[in-house]
């Protein structure tokens, strides 16, 4: 059982949902990302997504766009991001890491080399935003050969007829984009989730995580009531971006503030009993 499956199995036995946090690699520099990764794991993140910066992140809102730009100025590369993963794994062998990014830097690095190096570094799953099911043959064999999960986005616009197509080669968990839009903008209501999540349950046995617009402990708790995980990204990045100093650096105190947010999210989700069984 890989780290993602093991984590969801453990959480199910604990009757709670996963807190999935997000770090944009090298935003604003490598040291900050390394501190956030280690700190998030220590403060209650069950799974961590690492954003791989790209110049043209089409599915992302202003928060992650700006994070990506800071990261690229901070020296982000694909190899550098994999280096962060290797460093994290020297002290933590349990928290799953999922790389989330766009296809072109992966193509440029080479799909076979990328999947091998990612698995070797200790990555567990990949979310390639602009690789829909129709184009997955470009990566699927290499992803499988290296034992990585390929995690798919499912949107409110994904019809019932299309769900099986999208979920066919998915593994790890399903990332439900709970709103029509870009990351970090709108928020799905409890009623939206009560309507949408059962539709997904009918199509998959994989755990379901909800993202795009989950910002507060209260919202994360609502998500925990309906789904198996909540992804919080833009709210954490906003917290950090607002506190960067004049040189664009993150102080230790600022990193601690972000990690306090992670702890608050984790606490809110632990209070919430999960009643929906996969």
């Amino acid at each position: 059982m890989n780290r993602i499956a093991a984590t969801f199995a453990r959480l199910k036995s604990e009757d709670r949902a996963a807190l999935i946090t997000f770090v944009e690699a090298f935003d604003p520099d490598r040291a900050t990302s390394a501190a956030l990764l280690a700190g998030m794991a220590a403060r209650g993140a069950d799974i961590i997504e690492i954003g791989m910066p790209f110049t043209d992140p089409m599915a992302d809102g202003p928060t992650i766009q700006q994070a990506g730009r800071r990261a690229l100025s901070g020296g982000a590369t694909v190899a550098g991001t994999l280096g962060l993963v290797r460093e994290f794994r020297t002290t933590n062998d349990t928290v799953p890491l999922v790389l989330m990014g766009y296809l072109n830097p992966i193509l440029s690095y080479g799909v076979a080399r990328f999947t091998a190096d990612a698995a070797g570094a200790g990555v567990d799953g990949l979310i390639v935003v602009d690789l829909p099911t129709e184009e997955t043959d470009l990566m699927l064999a290499d992803v499988r050969a290296n034992g990585l999960d390929l995690i798919r986005l499912v949107a409110p616009t994904t019809s019932d007829a299309r769900l099986p197509v999208v979920l066919n080669d998915s593994s790890g968990f399903v990332y439900y984009v709970s709103i029509t839009g870009i990351t970090g903008t709108r928020t799905a209501s409890a009623a939206d989730l009560a309507r949408d999540i059962p539709r997904l349950r009918a199509a998959t046995t994989l755990p379901i995580a909800v993202g795009f617009g989950v910002r507060t402990p209260e919202q994360a708790a609502i998500v925990a009531r309906h789904a198996d995980g909540a992804v919080v990204a833009s709210a954490l990045i906003d917290r950090m971006a607002a506190g960067l100093d004049d040189q664009g650096k993150a102080s230790a105190a600022l990193i601690a503030t972000v990690l306090d947010d992670v702890a608050a999210l984790a606490a809110a989700m632990r209070r919430e009993r999960v009643t929906v069984l996969a």
């Binding site: 089409m58 829909p132 129709e134 986005l153 949107a155 616009t157 999208v166 029509t180």
Partner: peptide, 11 residues
């Protein structure tokens, strides 16, 4: 090809 996020794919 069609290299877009699933959010756009149905469109």
């Amino acid at each position: 090809g069609r290299f877009v996020a699933e959010t756009l794919m149905p469109l």
